[in-house]
Amino acid sequence: MASFGNAFSSSIGKKLIMGITGLFLISFLLVHCFINALIYVNDGGLTFNMGAHFMGTNWLIRAMEIVLFAGLLAHIIQGFRLVFQNQAARPVKYAVTNGAANSKWYSRSMGLLGTLLLIFLIVHINKFWVMSRFTGIPTTDANGNHDLFAVMVETFKDPLLVVLYVLAMVSLAYHLLHGFSSAFQTLGWNHKKYTPIIKSLGIWYSIIISLLFASMPIAMYLGLIK
């Protein structure tokens, strides 16, 4: 009988999971970033809260949210498994290695960068998502939407948190600087014509998204957005 056999437990299968979930997270970040950027409308968060409201109520988005969490979880679990298995594949380390001669440091540090992201995510989810979905957001805005914006303003009064966010976005930038094009390679999409395009797209994506995300807490902290 034909079956998928070891499709997902094989080394390539494990990578496939990383790649698909990674790309999924990338597309989620695009949406997330767009909605958040609505704060720059600078209307006291009215537009932003509308966006957040839409995200929180649209059934399709809600359904995708479940997929998102499953994907994130899969990405994280699989990511850690990879890290540990890969360490086990070289039980005795080299006395001297010159990784810089052949690869980028961040491509060799995906586990570390991912872990930093994980720590950030725990704080982040705890701060915003848990509140908006479960414990409830205390106030509403002029449109009657939950005033998530107000929560943001409140949160980013704490300089420590701002620093955490900025650092996390640096991690994200590097994670994606490798991850973006890597995911395509994993999926087998390597092509003399398209790969260069994907690579530069990846660089632009990683830098712009991370900069945008990082700019928000800073802008709020500095009071540029009210």
């Binding site: 070891n6 494990k14 298995q85």
Partner: peptide
Amino acid sequence: VAQMDAEGFGNCTNTGACEA
């Protein structure tokens, strides 16, 4: 691929060091 995995090699993370 199955044999490669059975031999205990690690999983690729596309660092590109091999090619270099």
